[in-house]
Write a protein that binds this DNA or RNA. Structure first.
Length: 289
DNA sequence: CACCATGTTCCTTG
DNA sequence: CCAAGGAACATGGT
């Protein structure tokens, strides 16, 4: 589920649900997701702590907790990896097969489940220091982009996945933003014109903001089984428009016709990830005058 | 069996 | 030291 919009929507959903709740017990079912924190340390630190706030940074969730006897707040970092989910469930509800960490909150449980276990739920917050600016903040500007891109000859699509350039853009929205900016994903980063940099900043913001808006409108249901639970984008809530079908213009549309010009959407592989684009709307070479 | 999947990190190579 | 490329991680869907 996770790129910035999905994580933002999740944060908005969870925030009121976890606020002021006290963690009674911690169950670690898959130690890999808490590394490098040890199970003992996680349990000692979280047990008895009260959830104070929940923030998002890039694709990370930052839980701040108050641990009695400690002056400084405890920070807990969550990341959904490729397949992670977080939700609250009644205590008697069955846990999903790949529940990785379960927090006992008294009346209910907080569950972090992750099929592939690429996600994180850890006290180690060092990853945050490597992140670039938030794409929806003023720090993310054409000037910032230009300065950073000038240092790299990597294809622009590959650079957009670099979290130290801008935090939160992933494989889906990278393709989407480039399509809207009409920039070829193959363009070397340092070859973008200033006009292109400006357009790219705008379309990245636009694509992410639109996805948040859409996700926030869909009624969220974080049950554990069934098709439309916990999925804001990839499931389809009854009667709700399907984001995948209607909002994404190029992602996963290889061979289908471009919504703008009708040309066939192309799929290529860059840095071992799929990239989708319209070769006509996003020409590789600029026509010289 | 083959290939694909919303992500990050580690290791190697130049 | 840095940039860039590729493998690894792990499970499931088609």
């Amino acid at each position: 589920m996770p790129e910035l919009p999905e994580v933002e929507v999740l944060a908005r959903h969870l925030r009121p649900l976890v606020k002021n709740k006290t963690i009674r017990a911690v169950e670690v079912r898959r130690a890999r997701v808490i590394r490098p924190t040890s199970e003992r340390t996680l349990k000692n630190t979280l047990t008895g702590a009260e959830l104070i706030s929940l923030e998002r940074r890039g694709k990370y969730l930052i839980f701040k907790l108050h641990k009695p006897g400690r002056r400084e707040p405890v920070k807990l970092l969550g990341h959904l990896g490729m397949t992670g989910r977080m939700f609250l469930a009644p205590k008697n509800a069955a846990l999903p097969k790949h529940a990785a960490v379960v927090l006992d909150l008294g009346r209910e449980r907080f569950v972090f489940e992750d099929t592939r276990y690429f996600g994180r739920f850890t006290l180690d917050v060092s990853s945050l220091a490597k992140l670039g600016p938030e794409p929806l903040s003023k720090e993310f500007s054409a000037k910032h982009l230009a300065r950073e891109l000038a240092k790299s000859r990597q294809p622009i699509k590959v650079k957009l996945l670099d979290q130290s350039l801008v935090a939160g853009v992933g494989n889906i929205y990278a393709s989407e933003a480039l399509f809207r900016a009409r920039i070829s994903p193959l363009s070397p980063a340092n070859k973008l014109t200033s006009a292109q940099n400006l357009r790219l900043v705008k379309t990245i913001r636009q694509v992410l903001a639109e996805a948040i808006r859409f996700g926030s409108t869909v009624p969220l249901n974080h049950g554990q089984t069934g098709d439309s639970d916990g999925l804001f984008y990839f499931g389809r809530a009854e009667g709700a428009p399907d984001y995948y079908e209607e909002r994404l213009k190029v992602y996963d549309r290889a061979g289908r016709s471009c919504r703008r010009c009708g040309h066939a959407i192309k799929r290529i592989v860059q840095a071992a990830r799929s990239t989708f684009y319209c070769p006509r709307c996003q020409p590789r070479l600029r026509l010289s005058a």
